[in-house]
Design a binder for these strands. Structure first.
Length: 647
DNA sequence: TAAGTGGACTCAGAAAAGTTTCT
DNA sequence: CAGAAACTTTTCTGAGTCCACTT
């Protein structure tokens, strides 16, 4: 808590120092090490899985693994054959080492994890029902750990650590069709963990009875701890958080590199356009791939192994992933990219590119590589020769940021209200997200949510219509001066209005009923006489009369202004409703257009934050509307950007 | 020598947690 | 004002890119 904002004065403004050589990442480094997940706590005695209808007592080691699966009942994992198969194989091998006392488990089909699942569900509910104090205590407990492990000192400055928790054991959740999905990810022991820490700084003590695997003092890397994961043999790291200077510096460098490309891209395009017709097949493939990376913001596409999900990027595209349409030089891409997200896009390319692609496909089978003579390594080597430090991914950053800036210019109306500008920004952001193919799954009640938004909008329109009519009632001369006041609201069908009026009455009645109960309670407490049901009926009647009046006024088009409805007040109310409707409309449009598009990824990783910062300054939009607290922290280095700054 | 490989880092969507709004 | 629902932020960790090193 007291960390925030305490050191505004001595804050390290690294972006004001021009330190471009960062081969040495730090001089001194201290931290508290890593936090291990709590040890496994066996289930209560009576909670057991069943095998062939018989409860099975498992040793804790096996029970833990069983529990990993039991927790997933009802999810898509349960229906994933590979996931189930991989889990069960690993479960069996654990069982071989830690066998149950009674039956031998052989068949997955005979396993019943339901009792364990139900138990977990119960525990979850209990947790939810915890008292305020208990929840508060748990929160404090968490904060204490974060206080201890959440900070590192880099060159004497306090910096936030990102992921200080060692990943707990569990079932590997590979994305898409990962051949290893469901396999057991084993518990990591301190003996497997290497710490990286400054020489001469106290080494954080390992958990009791354990030793660290290794201690390093490598100043050329940024990680604080590392270990190997058993599924793919890949290396895991503990890094500093996104707000740290190290991450900030490399972020700034990334965007500066992309800006540098701006000055070269014209020449590079000319260069690869020429190469499209090169005699050498390798050169033609390279230039064609580069065209796609430049125009479509495709990823480089490294080769992948058989032990991974089958996904591709540009260089690894196979013939089955593209279809050529002679009409208008069209190409249809359909493949699974990073995270097995589908890239499905129909685009028009230049005739030369189209011809090249046709040539590359000729005589090949669907599973052959389109660019059989191209690797990401050789592509990047070529790019670096065109501009120092240029690689395929720089094009994605460049394209995204450039698109954002161009779209903002196109969509922003400086005279429009802030809410319109926010919508324009989100639309520009969305163009970038679509370009980068950043997707998300549709939330399960999206449809219902849209319906509700539409309904709310209508009810405000209904209010506005009444206010307009009241205005006309107050000053009939307005009918000529402002004919728009007479116009009906769009989408307000009589059927909807009728129902709405009934709803209004119902809601009013509910309110009255509550008021009635409340007053009676009070009367009881004060020893006064209770209100009779008859009284309530009278109230209800009044509500009904109001409802009927509304209906009548709607049908006649004549709405009587009340005693408090002065012209000034009505005008003010109208203006307020106009604003509210405009905001609601924009929200609804935004929501629908965002259904399957994830804006966050591009905002976080691809769009130069200075574009946003400058735009907000120029347009008088509060930056908080576009960047939440985390983003503002992460992009501290971009916050002082002037309004005339250009990417 | 270029192809393979491990290492270190960025980028990715889902899920959990937290906050705000609605009823 | 409580409890639920909606919405936002944070966490989590898997999946890429790219480089240096080795053979």
């Amino acid at each position: 808590m007291d960390e925030e904002g305490e050191d505004d004065d001595d804050e390290h403004k690294w972006w004001l120092e021009n330190r471009w050589d960062d081969s040495v990442k730090w001089k001194t480094l201290s931290h508290a090490g890593v936090l291990f997940p709590p040890p496994y706590i066996p289930l209560p005695k009576g909670i057991r899985m069943k095998y062939d209808g018989v409860p099975v007592s498992l040793p804790p080691e096996a029970e833990e693994v069983m529990g990993f699966f039991a927790a997933l009942l009802g999810t898509d994992y349960e229906a994933d054959e590979v996931f189930v198969q991989n889990f069960f194989t690993d479960f069996l091998s654990i069982l071989a080492r830690y066998p149950p006392t009674n039956p031998v488990i052989r068949s997955f089909a005979l396993c019943d994890f339901r009792p364990v699942f139900d138990h977990f569900q119960m525990v979850k509910d209990q947790k939810k029902a915890l008292t305020k104090e208990d929840k508060e205590r748990a929160k404090e407990e968490k904060a204490k750990l974060e206080e201890k492990y959440g900070w590192a000192y880099l060159d004497g400055r306090k910096e936030k650590v990102g992921n200080f928790r060692i990943e707990p054991p569990g079932l590997f959740r590979g994305r898409g069709k990962h051949p290893k999905t469901g396999m057991l990810k084993r518990r990591v022991l301190p003996e497997q963990v290497t710490l990286n820490i400054g020489k001469g700084t106290p080494i954080p003590p390992p958990p009791k009875g354990h030793k660290w695997g290794n201690i390093k003092h490598d100043q050329t890397v940024t990680w604080l701890a590392t270990w190997n994961e058993n599924i793919n043999g890949s290396t895991k790291y503990v890094f500093l958080g996104a707000t740290s200077s190290l991450k900030g510096i490399s972020d700034l460098k990334k965007f500066e590199k992309a800006r540098e490309l701006k000055g070269h891209v014209h020449r590079i395009r000319k260069n690869y356009t020429r190469d499209l017709k090169d005699r050498l097949m390798a050169v033609r493939q390279r230039s064609t791939a580069l065209y796609l990376i430049d125009q479509l913001a495709l990823r480089a596409g490294n080769e992948k192994g058989d032990e991974e999900a089958d996904t591709v990027g540009c260089c690894s595209l196979r013939c089955e992933h593209i279809r050529l349409e002679p009409e208008g030089n069209r190409v249809i891409f359909d493949f699974l990219g990073k995270d097995s997200i589908r890239y499905h896009n129909e685009v028009e390319v230049t005739h030369q590119v189209w011809k090249n692609l046709r040539h590359f496909l000729r005589g090949k089978s669907p599973s052959d590589d389109v660019f059989d003579q191209l690797r990401t390594a050789s592509l990047n080597k070529h790019l670096t020769s065109l501009m120092p430090g240029l690689t395929a991914k720089v094009f994605r950053t460049f394209n995204a940021s450039h698109t954002m800036e161009a779209q903002l210019r196109l969509l922003t109306n400086s005279a429009a209200p802030v809410s319109d500008k926010v919508l324009a920004y989100n639309r520009a952001n969305r163009e970038v997200a679509i370009l980068c193919n950043h997707q998300r799954s549709v939330t399960k009640n999206h449809g219902a949510q849209m319906d509700r938004l539409g309904d709310k909008l209508k009810s405000v329109k209904y209010q506005r219509w009444r206010v307009k009519r009241k205005l006309l009632n107050v000053d009939p001369k307005l009918s000529k001066k402002r004919p728009e006041l007479k116009e009906p609201e769009s989408d307000l069908e009589p059927e909807w209005c009728e129902k709405h009026e009934m709803d209004l009455v119902e809601k009013e009645k509910e309110k009255l009923r509550k008021k009635f109960d409340r007053e009676n309670e009070k009367a009881l407490a004060d020893g006064k006489k209770k209100l009779s049901e008859k009284e309530l009926k009278v109230w209800f009647k009044e509500a009904e009369v109001v409802g009927k009046t509304y209906a009548k006024e709607r049908k006649s088009g004549k709405v009587l202004a009340g005693a408090r409805d002065t012209q000034d007040r009505l005008e003010a109310a109208l203006a307020k409703l106009d604003e509210r409707i405009s905001v609601m409309k924009n929200d609804a449009i935004d929501k629908e257009e965002n259904k399957t598009t994830a804006l966050g990824t591009s905002k976080l990783n691809y769009i130069d934050p200075r574009i946003t910062s400058a735009w907000c300054k120029r347009e008088g939009v509060p930056l908080e509307k576009m960047f939440n607290k985390t983003l503002r922290e992460k992009f501290k280095w971009a916050m002082d950007t002037e309004g005339d700054w250009e990417f």
